[in-house]
Simulated assay, not measured.
Amino acid sequence: MQKATSGDGHRRVPVLAVKNVSYWYGSKKALKDVSFDVYPGRVTALLGPNGAGKTTLFSLITRLFDASEGRIEIVGRSPSEWGSKALAPLGVVFQQPTLDLDLTVKQNLRYFAALRGLARKDADERMHRALAALAMGERIEERVRSLNGGHRRRVEIARALLHGPQLLLLDEPTIGLDVPTRTAIVRHIHELARADNIGVLWATHLFDEVKDDDDLLVLDRGRIVASGEARDIVAETGARDLGGAFRLLIGGETEEDVAA
């Protein structure tokens, strides 16, 4: 992936740098010399078939696992060296829901804000702002159990943004949602990245969630097999669209075979 530059030509510093990372499960090598950067204000889409290593990669970035080889830096700090301080600029929405269903939207967000050390007044202001941006402001007093899947996802995204992260990780955030809800979330995340200068790493198996000018990583059998702007990758393969380019890059998988 080309080094990103600002409007005045100066190279920007990545909010996430993954350098020559490899990882084993016993004797099986799940990731093989993976390197890439995520830049502020950019959405980087991560595509890969089932078993490609996407979940392993997210686990390493969030330090659920420690990398066997290589280095990961979040805003210049390695989690293996800095621990929780390195993870402070990170917001995460995991594939599996993690909200407390018996608490209200407000209670869920206040609890998270307290864990992050935010003062109540500041937390409430951020909460209302984040929920309003996701068209969820009127549901703040509702119990999460009463919300549908799309609304719960929006609450999780709002929660991930409360502390003002510089890097947002999204692991299949729209899985199981209807098309209008997916479209709204995709649009909001792209607008958010630009407006707040957040770097986003978005794992998805849906080609229509990737915009032509997004940065794109294609991961296959633990290796990065393509990186660059999505439109450039499609052009380089000679395919008609991203789905066709993806199938060529990974050796013929169909769209239905792509999964987290």
Rank of each mutant, 00 (worst) to 15 (best):
A86M: 04
L168F: 10
L216C: 13
D124I: 00
R194E: 14
P180S: 12
D213L: 09
D102M: 00
I189Y: 03
A113K: 03
A235H: 03
P79R: 01
A158D: 08
L57H: 00
P49D: 09
V93Y: 04
K85T: 01
V75M: 02
G252N: 08
M127F: 04
I175E: 09
L90R: 01
G83M: 04
L249R: 01
R240D: 14
T56W: 10
L60Q: 09
E125S: 14
G252F: 08
L242I: 08
L167K: 03
R139T: 03
D8W: 05
L242T: 12
L162T: 02
V92W: 02
V179H: 14
G91H: 09
A239L: 03
D124E: 15
V155W: 00
P180H: 08
G26T: 05
P173R: 00
K3V: 11
A260F: 04
Y25H: 10
I74P: 00
D178M: 11
L242K: 14
K3N: 09
R116Y: 08
A86E: 07
A230M: 13
A88T: 00
A114N: 12
A30F: 02
V225Y: 11
D212Q: 14
G26A: 01
S27P: 13
P89C: 06
V186F: 12
K28W: 09
I250N: 13
I189K: 07
D257P: 05
L217S: 09
H190Q: 15
E142Y: 06
R223V: 15
G83F: 04
I250D: 11
G222P: 02
F246K: 06
A30D: 02
E69A: 09
E256Y: 06
N148L: 06
F58D: 01
L134R: 05
G244K: 03
F246N: 03
K121M: 08
F65H: 13
A132G: 13
N20Y: 00
D8E: 03
I175F: 04
V43I: 14
V258K: 01
L192P: 02
R247G: 14
R159C: 03
D122T: 11
S6K: 11
A195S: 14
E172H: 12
R71C: 01
H128Y: 15
P165I: 13
H128I: 15
A135V: 08
G150V: 00
L217Y: 09
F246S: 02
G48A: 12
R159N: 04
G137V: 01
L16Q: 04
P97W: 05
K28N: 13
P89V: 00
L90Q: 09
K121P: 11
G9H: 05
G9Q: 06
I140T: 10
L161A: 12
